[in-house]
């Protein structure tokens, strides 16, 4: 029994290791970087994490279920372009001047559709999800370029932009949205049948199938959720930048992947907690923030990021070997 509780503690630490790293980093930054130790900066870190954070939820669900979704970034970009195009007031927009609710409904529906498409090729055509979503990664951003003819859109419907500007008390709306999503999906993963099935399917599709779980439906569900979350992130991205440009969101797939791995989700599937992923997203956000305010050669930025990839992968390997020893 003593052994089992020790094991539990160790497992808890592994699941939450990103929080410890985050805490250490924030303390170090607060003590050493001028201008860092203030609520507005902490608030920035929280609200800037929203795009990486939402994509990381989508990616984490896919990876826990034993699959992969590389299309999240491009779906987000497409959604941002569609939102800006429909709700934009500049000459390159559609001229439809749609409002927040209707654009949100349209992009979320598109997210469902994309999830169904990804799911269809993975589940029915039995093509590796890496390949299917790689194709999506290439295609969906290009669809956005076709829609606007490669132009940017400036100034969109004020009720969309308001989401990026509103705070409730001292807490920005972005932070509330992100925390609500993490809370909701954490609850889903741990307290609902569907959530548990995502873990079982990720551990062994065959065992889950034999146990009577409809594996196909679980995978469809996961891809649809990933599509919808990415579309939501795109809508928020349009709100944030008050428009769109062709390269919007580029590179966030990597950041989301990094957040997922730093957060302790195993790339093998079946293992991982969203609490850790949340910490991973905040970790990346705080590093970006410190780079933005500290006076240093900007070229170091990519060195820091490169180091972070190595650290994340090493961490994942280390955690996996420790887990293996536990069993």
């Amino acid at each position: 029994m003593d052994n089992s509780s020790k094991r539990k503690t160790l497992k808890w630490i592994l699941d939450n290791i990103a929080w410890f790293i985050l805490a250490v980093l924030v303390v170090v930054f607060s003590l050493t970087v001028e201008g860092f130790a203030q609520w507005p900066i902490y608030r920035n870190i929280l609200s800037h994490a929203i795009f990486i954070g939402i994509l990381a939820i989508a990616e984490a669900l896919c990876i826990i279920s034993g699959e992969m979704d590389l299309s999240v970034e491009s779906v987000m970009a497409l959604s941002a372009v569609v939102t800006a195009y429909l709700a934009g007031t500049s000459t390159d927009a559609s001229g439809l001047y749609m409002n927040g609710v209707s654009t949100l409904a349209i992009v979320l529906a598109a997210g469902v559709l994309i999830g169904l498409i990804n799911g269809f090729f993975v589940v029915k055509m039995k093509i590796n999800s890496f390949i299917v979503t790689l194709a999506g990664y290439l295609a969906f951003r290009a669809v956005g370029l076709v829609i606007t003819g490669g132009r940017g859109v400036l100034n969109i419907s004020p009720d969309i932009v308001a989401v990026a500007r509103t705070s409730i008390g001292p807490i920005p709306m972005f932070v509330i949205i992100m925390v609500a999503l993490y809370g909701g999906f954490h609850w889903m993963l741990n307290r609902t049948r569907f959530g548990k099935y995502i873990y079982y399917v990720g551990d062994s599709k065959e065992a889950a199938f034999n146990a009577g779980i409809r594996v196909d439906r679980v995978l469809y569900g996961v891809f649809i959720i990933a599509g919808v979350l990415s579309a939501l992130a795109g809508w928020l991205l349009a709100a944030r930048t008050n428009g769109c440009s062709p390269s919007l969101g580029m590179g966030l797939l990597f950041e989301a992947m990094a957040a997922v791995v730093i957060g302790g989700v195993s790339l093998q599937g079946g293992i991982g907690k969203l609490t850790g992923v949340f910490a991973g997203a905040l970790l990346l956000s705080s590093i970006s923030t410190v780079i933005a305010i500290v006076g240093m050669n900007p070229f170091y930025m990519n060195i820091i990021r490169g180091g972070l990839i190595i650290a994340a992968v090493t961490l994942d390997t280390a955690i996996r070997s420790i887990r293996a020893k536990l069993t």
């Binding site: 049948r193 873990y199 990720g202 551990d203 065959e206 889950a208 034999n210 146990a211 293992i271």
Partner: peptide, 25 residues
């Protein structure tokens, strides 16, 4: 059905495994 050879979901706890596929809600 109880299969010997087929794999089990190793990440399910004993009590979760008891109810896999028909969890009480």
């Amino acid at each position: 059905t109880v299969y010997q050879q087929s794999p089990v979901c190793t990440n399910a706890t004993v009590y979760e495994n008891f109810f896999i596929g028909r969890e009480p809600v």
